[in-house]
């Protein structure tokens, strides 16, 4: 996308190098050796979403993970025609890990609330690449397990009082 024009105007590093630097900061990829991380940095693409564009939509199995390079996106859930705003994601967030691992129609939608520039990778590319380095899979799994555990722990610690009803449905880290 036109974001690349930025570094074509004479910045010293190329997009590949920038992608690599970003991946090194994402838990999901940071444990991988450089040689493997390079392949992922090469396979990633940048996308721009204009304000109001959907990054992904509920019920669709787009099979991508996103890293927000700049901008803000909002997570929504539609139910019976009602749209519930869940939270916002900002620069530096990474989401969609599970969508990389297997088929998964989205349970939520994500909409750009400003212009958003993302680094994305598709499930197809991710699986093809990780298949070339099967011994890296444990690191990926470990990263996912830790993320899920941390998530639920955070939820349990920070939940508010009026959440008693949902308390009976928690425990996603037990799956």
């Amino acid at each position: 996308m036109n974001s690349n024009s930025v570094n074509n105007k004479g910045t010293p590093s190329c997009e590949f190098q920038e992608n690599l630097d970003m991946l090194r900061q994402i838990d999901f990829f940071s444990a991988l050796p450089l040689e493997v991380a390079k392949v992922f940095a090469y396979l990633c693409t940048r996308e721009i979403f204009k304000t109001g564009d959907y990054l992904f939509q509920q019920d669709e199995d787009d099979g991508q993970a996103f890293y927000i390079i700049s901008g803000k996106a909002r997570l929504l859930h539609k139910e019976d025609g009602q749209e519930l705003i869940i939270r916002d994601y900002e620069t530096g967030s990474f989401f969609g890990r599970l969508a990389l691992m297997g088929n998964m129609p989205r349970l939520f939608s994500m909409i750009a609330v400003t212009d958003v520039t993302c680094l994305t990778i598709t499930r197809q590319k991710f699986l093809k690449a990780i298949n070339q380095f099967p011994d890296q899979m444990p690191r990926i799994i470990k990263a996912i397990v830790e993320t899920i555990q941390a998530w639920e722990k955070r939820f349990l610690t920070h939940r508010t009082e009026n959440c008693e009803a949902c308390m009976h449905k928690i425990g996603v880290s037990l799956v």
């Binding site: 690349n4 570094n7 074509n8 004479g10 590093s13 190329c14 997009e15 590949f16 992608n19 090469y42």
Partner: peptide, 15 residues
Amino acid sequence: VPGIHKMVSLPEILE
């Protein structure tokens, strides 16, 4: 093609 082959950037001077 700089927009596709991202492993190298095109220096401004060369451009």
